[in-house]
Computed example of a mutant assay.
Amino acid sequence: MVIPILTGYVTITHPDGVDTGTTVQAHVQPETPGVPANGQVNDSPTYRVFVDGLVDVRFNDRIRWDGLLLQVLEQPARYPSPFGGPHHVEVVGTVMPETYVEVLRGSVQDEYGDLIPDETPILTGVPVWLTEQSQTTFVPADMRTTVVRKLTGLVPPETDIQERDRLRTEDGLTYLVEAVTRPHSSVARADLRLDLRLVQTGPETP
């Protein structure tokens, strides 16, 4: 059976958030689940993405294509042109699951006139992909090391999300939006990048 190759545009984002997303033309081919480079068995759908040889795509990058978010779990394969210079890059991306959240905004007065967070969602069913990165940092004042947790999320570019909004997941976790990066692309708008902080755990969270 011949698996078709689809042509379209993909948006590539580095997980460190230094860039604002790059949208390029690509060819995408569905593949069967395999075993990524780290040796862990992967049951998620995978896609092979072909882009121009000059495109900056790296291991652990994220690729948005046709409503799917892929994560690069292998080192991209770069192929030279027979006439010199780079020809194309092949990337294997695995579909990352999305979480659906409610967006909460602002405050209301309680029965005593005090301001409390408004628990009425302004948006529901918003797809978001959450990721956490941990970094060990030495604190000279305390002469010890500590682990800094960095939470980020990606949401569709048209989503109405602002700084200080809160995202509430289906299992009761609540994240505060500390920063919103609105990328710009000459071809298509890239996903919004959110810097998050966990402010409330769910009822079953230890």
Rank of each mutant, 00 (worst) to 15 (best):
T46A: 04
R48I: 02
R48C: 00
V49E: 01
F50E: 01
V51M: 03
V51I: 07
G53R: 11
V55P: 03
D56T: 04
R58C: 04
F59L: 09
N60M: 04
I63H: 01
D66F: 00
L69D: 01
V72N: 02
L73N: 07
E74P: 00
S81M: 03
F83L: 15
G85Q: 09
H87P: 04
H88Y: 13
V89K: 06
V91R: 03
V91L: 01
G93M: 00
G93C: 00
V95Q: 10
V95Y: 08
P97Q: 09
P97M: 08
E98Y: 08
E98V: 07
E98L: 10
T99C: 04
Y100R: 08
V101M: 02
V101S: 03
E102V: 08
R105S: 13
Q109D: 12
D110F: 11
E111F: 05
Y112A: 10
L115F: 12
P117K: 08
P117V: 07
D118Q: 11
D118M: 05
E119L: 09
E119K: 05
T120D: 13
T120W: 08
P121W: 07
I122Q: 03
I122N: 01
I122T: 03
T124L: 08
T124P: 06
G125D: 13
P127G: 07
P127C: 08
T131N: 11
E132P: 01
Q133C: 02
S134K: 15
S134H: 15
Q135N: 15
T136S: 11
T136M: 11
T137N: 14
T137I: 15
V139A: 05
V139P: 02
A141V: 14
A141W: 12
A141K: 14
A141Y: 12
D142Q: 15
M143Y: 11
M143G: 07
T145E: 12
T145M: 07
T146S: 09
V147I: 13
V148E: 14
R149F: 12
R149V: 13
L151F: 14
G153P: 03
G153W: 04
G153K: 04
L154N: 01
P156A: 05
P156K: 01
P156M: 03
I161E: 09
I161V: 14
Q162D: 13
E163Q: 15
E163T: 14
R164C: 09
D165F: 06
D165Y: 03
D165E: 07
R166D: 06
R166N: 06
R168K: 12
R168D: 04
D171K: 03
D171F: 03
T174A: 04
Y175C: 08
V177K: 04
T181V: 03
T181A: 02
R182N: 11
H184C: 09
S185P: 11
S185A: 15
S186T: 10
A188F: 09
A188M: 13
